[in-house]
Structure formats: C-alpha cells, structure tokens
Design a protein around this nucleic acid. Sequence first.
RNA 1: GGGCGGUUAGCUCAGCUGGUUAGAGCGUCUGAUUUACAUUCAGAAGGUCGUAGGUUCGACUCCUACACCGCCCACCA
Length: 898
Amino acid sequence: MSSPELSKVYEPKSVEKHWYAHWLKKGYFKAKAAPKGKPYTIVIPPPNVTGILHMGHALNNTLQDILIRYKRMSGYRTLWMPGTDHAGIATQNVVERSLREEGLTRQQLGREAFLERVWKWREKYGNTIVRQLHRLGASCDWDRTRFTMDEGLSEAVREVFVRLYEKGLIYRGKYIINWCPRCQTALSDEEVQHKEINGHLYHLKYAIEGTDGHVTIATTRPETMLGDTAVGFNPTDERYRHLSGRTATLPLINRRLRIISDESIDPSFGTGALKITPSHDPVDFELARKHELEFINILNPDGTLNENAGPYAGLDRFEARRRIVADLEDRRILLEIKEHQHSVGHCYRCSTVIEPYFSSQWFVHMKPLAAPAIEAVEKERTVFAPKRWTKVYLDWMHNIKDWCVSRQIWWGHRIPVWTCAACRDKGKTAAETVFRPGQGRVYREPGMIVARKDPKACPDCGGVLEQDPDVLDTWFSSWLWPFSTLGWPEKNKDLKFFYPTACLVTGYEIIFFWVARMIMSGIEFMGREPFKQVYIHGIVRDETGAKMSKSLGNAVDPIEIIDEFGADALRYGIISITAEGQDVYCSKEKFEVGRNFANKIWNASRLVLMNLDTRKLRPSAVPTPAQLGPINRWIISRVNQTAASLAESLDRHRFNEAASTLYDFIWHQYCDWYLELAKPTMKDRATQWTMHYVLERTLRLLHPFMPFITEEIWQKIPHKGESIMVSEWPKPEKRRIDPKLETEVDIILGEIQAIRNVRSAWQINPKESVTVAVKVAGDTELRILREYSTYIVQMAKVSSLQIGKTLARPKESAVANVGRVETYVVLTGLVDVQVERQRIEAALADVDRLIRGLEGRLKNEEFLRKAPKEIVDKERQKAVELESRRQRLHENLRSLGE
RNA sequence: GGGCGGUUAGCUCAGCUGGUUAGAGCGUCUGAUUUACAUUCAGAAGGUCGUAGGUUCGACUCCUACACCGCCCACCA
C-alpha cells in the first residue's frame, strides 16, 4: 500500500475487495497435508445450490471462519472444506417453477431434458452463495470446493449404497410413508414438520349388518373412509364387545367391513371405536398387517382421489372431504362435529399437508449403524456443545427408525438398482415378504441387480435392464460429507491427514438430518467418528422472535449489511449477540455497533500512525521497564491479559464473550484511557514503542473476528511477515502481566473519575481547571497518588493538586470518596450547601446499607465458622474500609454545618 | 403426553464451577467539540434478577413447584 496515511472514516468496500483478492492470489486459504503438521479441519455445512446468503449462513460461517483463522494463526494446518449441496427437492422445485413460467412441466420436457435444465440452472445461479461467502471473508480452501452431485461424491454415494446393500442394511419395502402430493415424492420422517391445527373430529355412524344397530366412529379425515376395510375397538371395551365377529357397512359405498378388536386402540379417545384405513394411516397400517386386513388405496400421487373412491374419484382430497361431509350429513350419518386440535404433518420444503401413503420405497436399516454412534457420544469421542444436545441426539438415536431414502423426483443420485423384466417374470416369490433387515441377509428380488457401475445388460440372460426411476434422499449424499469431500472411497494423503475433522459448526435444526447421520456414516465407512466436537449455535430470528424468512419479508439481508456497514461490522455484530447456543434476535441496528467499532479501531490507528515515527521505530528495540513507565507498562499488561482471556473464551466457544473482551479492551482501555493518557508523551520512544506494540498485537487478536480492517491497518504499521492472516497468534507474554501495577492504575483511574464526576455534578465548564486536595489514609496510597499525580492533573483538568495524609478540607469544596481516598474539589462560589449535603447523605445511606449487610455476616457465628477464610478476611477488610468511609462522610457533613 | 430453552435496567441481551456495591450495547437525561473518531468524548439516572417454597453461613447462580413465552419429540383415530 502506497500511502501510510489513513482516511478520516473507514471505508470497507475497497479494502475488502482488495484484501480478499490478495489472500486468494497468495493462496493463504490453501490447505496442504504435511505429515509433521497438526491438522485442524472444518467441513462447511454445505448450503443449498439454490440458496442465497441469509443471516443464518452469516452466523454459521463467521463462527467457522473465526475458528479457522484462529487455528491457522496458531500454527495448525487448517482446512476449511467448502462446497454446496444439490438439495434435490428444493432445487427441483425452483427449476420447475421457472419452467411453469414458460408454461412447461417437467413431464413435458422429459427426464433427460429436465436434468439438463437443472444443470444449466446450477451453472448460472449455483455459485451465488459461494460468491457471497467470499464477501463475508470466509477463508475456505476454494480450490477444493465440492458439490454433492459432482463425480467423486456421486461415486461415494454409489459405493455406500452398494456396501450397505451387501451388508443387508438396504431393502425395498411396501410401507406407509409420508407423501407430499405437491412435490409428489416420499419424505423421510424427519422431513415432515408437525403443526398444531384446529381441525374437527367427525362422529360417523356405521350400520351393523343384520341388525338395526350401528357403531359410531370418530375421525379427523372423513374422506379416508373410502379406504376403510375394518372397524376396531379395544377388547376390554364393554360397549362394543357384542360386535365381535360381526360386519359393519361402510356408508356411501356400502363396503363390508370386518369388526376387530385390538389392545392398541384407546377406549377413551372419541367414541372408542376406530375406523381402519390401512393404506392411509400408519396406525391402521400396523393393525391391518396384524389382522390381515385388505389394503385399499384411494389416492393418486397428486392428492386427488382415484378410481377406488367411486363417485368421488378425481376430486382433490380437500374438496372430497367437503363433499363427503355434506353427503354424510344429508344421510344423517354424520352425528356430530367437534372442534379438535391435533398435529398435522407438512412438507418441510413446500408446507403442503402430507398424506400417509402406502407405497414401495427403499429403506436403510439404521439400528446397527446407530449402536456405535451412540457409543461414540456416550464415551465422549464426539462432544456436543452446549451439552444439552447430547440428550436430544441420544434420544433420537435410541429410537431410530429405518430411513426411507428413495424419492420420486428426478434431481439427485439415481438409485443404483436395475431390473431385468424377463428374469423378474420368471421368479416366483417376492423376496421382500420374507426379508428381515439387519439379519446379515441380503435383500433380493427376482431379476434385481445392485451395482457400482452401470450394467449394460442382464448378467444372467443378457436381457434389457431398467433402472429404478427414483433418486436418493439428498441427505444420503450429505451424510458422507466429512470424507467424501476428501476423495473417499479413494485412499489418499488428504483423507489420512485431515480426517477426522476437529469441529462441526451447525444449527440444531439439522442434528437428526445431518449430524447424527454423519456420525453413523463416519464410523461405518471410515472407522472413526467424523468430528471431535459439535458446536451447535442458535437460529437467527428477527426482533419479534420469528424465524427469518424471505416470504415474511422480515429478513435482514447480510449482503445489504456488508454494503452499508462492511463485512467486519456484520461479523462483529452477529458474533456479539451470539450467546452459546442461544437463538439470535437480529435487527439492522445491531450492526451499527460493529460499524462504530470498526471506525473506532480505524481512528485509533490513525492517531497512532500520525504520531509514529516509522523510520525510527524499531519494534525489536524493547525499552526497559524504567523507560516505559507505569502507564505504558499498564497497557502492555492489559493487552497480554486480554490475549489470555481471549484464548480461553475461544477455546470454550464463548464467541460473544471473546468479542466483548476485545471491544472493551480496544475501546475503553486502549482508546479511552491509554491513548488519552499517552497523548502528551506521544513523541517519546517508550510511548511510541508501546502504542505500536499494543496496536499490532491487538490487531492480530482481532483478526479472526474482523479480518479486513485488521489486515488493512496492520499492513500500514511496522510489522513482520507478509499478511496478518498468516502471522502468529499472540500468546500472552506472562512476564509482562503485572496485576499489582494494574491495581495501582485502577486507583488512579478511579480518582480521575471521581473528580470528573464532581465536576459534572456541579456543571463546571470542561475548559476550567479546578483545585483539588486529596487526603489518603496510608503510605501506599500516598506513594501511588504522588507517582501518578501528573495523570490526574492531565485527565481531570486539575490546576493544583495537593496530596497528604492530614489535609484539612478546603473551604467551599465538594467531596468524593473512592476506596480509602478522599478527594476535595474546590468550588469557590459554587457550593450549594443544601445540594452538597444531599449528595453526602445519599452516599452515606449507601455506605450504611452496605455496612449493615456486612455486619450481619460478620456477627454470624456460622458464617465465621463455615465460610472459607479468604472470604471472611475479605469481608472484614471491606468492613474496615466502609467504616472509615462512613466516618469521613460524617466529618464532611459536620463541616458543612459551619 | 414427554423433553428442552427462556423469563435480569425503557429495549435487546451477558452474567460459565454459589461469595461483585448485578454488567454491556441501544435508548433517555446533563454537559462538551477549531484535528484520531459525533460512526465521538465526559458524566448521570434507571434493576425487590417471573412467582412461591427449599438447600446453604451465603442464592441472579443449586433444588422443587407454579405461571407465562418459545422450540423439539411422540401412531392426540
């Protein structure tokens, strides 16, 4: 950079662009495996290719970048692995929407042409989020960017499918699954969001064949009655026992229904009698299997009713509900409609009400995979932070269900299963009816082939093969992310060096979807859990607590914040409000704090640069302690103390604490106190050396949080090395930490504040100097105050300062008490006795209150006996101090009376 | 139905293993400003830490119950 001068206000835009390009060019983000190095790996939670950066991403990625930059500076071989996720359903939806604007459907286009469109779409828009991450300052190794649909990762998916299949953990089965009629695909249980809905409970009367009687059932979905094949009740239920073995008649279409009894039916719900719809309800499905009932599917994949619905065929499910309710009412079959709140499943991608749907799908049997993953967390080989998520994880894992992995969409990894129609037709039994997953037996169907490489023809008969039309759940590729991105199944150096990763940073909404499954796959395929720590952060919400979303229009756009305030301000702002694991409430104003902070740092640096004689300053020529003097030594001690507490905060993932430690140090200690104290001596070598030492160190400490501004300033002040981002993380220099000195300086700062307080209370013009007398109790204070008196004079605008142990209170003076020091500020002609009396009395009341509390404790035998000695001593000392202050205040009051 | 998180200054939130005179930012009020910064400086006001019990020498902090807000899980036909 040419000119060492800084502009008056920090302008992030050009700075950010310049340094990010520079870092990229220099290859600082690149990770190289080196057998002797210590690895530190983070894999990015791959954002959807369809995604645009929102505040959740900003938080998630800032956290990762802080860790990575911190560890990089600390000497680790860091790899932050980036990439994106093909997001099957979401991406397909987006592309279909754009097709619809052209009046087209994917079916009209056909599978291949549609997929071409998706790839084109991804070429055009898929990089948006990556570019946005650049603007955030993310130091990912971009050359390694992976995509879940690229060649290598697709190979990993195949390999995993086949291995699991060969282990007998993958099978096809006909089950009730969750069906989204809009996306027209199966969903896993995790992809269903349950919402409380105010619905209705309909009581319907089913006639009993051969009698005049009837049975009344209750249902929330009356349209499903068309799929009923039985009626049930609890065997202990006296009301219905007489119906055992009889037959009921389904209204409207007069189907004959068996009447069964089963313990699982709750007699206290509704009427105690249950209509059984095996194809459209998971509970009924189980009952039907047990009692060997008939399965009747009444739905088309798009949610309309099919030919089994008789007169209602072709109607949409909700329209059918209205019509059926009306018809039942007409025929006096509908006895009652009750308000009824219940939870209804919705598609997590499009919010459509899902239907339990009977169909043939591929499943992964999870129990055997879960067992070692449970152990990994129980034995703390993988640790959650905050800890409470451990239980959430374990509960889910202990109750894990088989994973439905087939999706009836086109965008995704095609299921590597083929069927030879000829061989299938020759086969006699359907193997799936006897297959038991997890028994070490491999699932087989006649004519079925599962293969790593696309087979050309049937290996048995040479006949034509047809591939399963379905694709795999997107999470079936994401769960391999920590090792598939490193080249697995190939064995290579990177995989060996960078796996397992150090820390996974993510939000709690994907613990089941992603985190748990990665732990399982990591152990299964790599033999080791994929990360040592899982840091779970909160979700970003708006100021009313609503989840931010584009559709609600409440989203604060991170890119807008970067444009207006700068990336560092965004990063600082979002981190400063992130208490461990707590949700984040976000509004634009929060980022002003970050901008102001950046500006403060900028201007402090300007001041330092304006005064620094960069030609004469030799950072290596350390002044002696005597040359430095107390104030320089104080700030040097402080910065090292700050470095120590910062490292601790970071290691414990207390990011907001780390942020506020830096804020407080830079703003209040370095700027407000040190630089102001140092102003008169800024041309001195000791001060110059100190200003620079502290600033340079501070910039490095701050760099992981605010990478751009720190690089910009660092480059303009004397420094060692070519970039702050590859400079060394400042370890605290313990020998420069001096707690005794800090206590002394604190007394002086308190003294200055006390005088300022008096001045302000009496409205003394800041330009006017005051005469001050300070009475101290002991020799220590006397020494300290004398030693630092020039600073008091300077900072509190004092013209004459008297210090002594036996001073009389000057006439017409106001008094301030701090610790064991009493300060008189002369206010000739200003003192209003009444006002001063009130001030002293207020202070006295305060002291009295504290003394009462202390005395209570010190008179308490048990306290004296049971409390630790240090605490008791501390309290005693406090009591002595407060007592002397009380006396002084009383004296002050008396002297007012003159 | 089970579980989790929250309830602290007007607002938004820190406060980690019990011992401080309970903190910050924003907002409010008082005052300042010919060069580091008004994206600023100095000072101030403002809190019975959701409620009720309990443990303890000592509770914002630990325990129990309750209330309200939010979230997650569960086959509430």
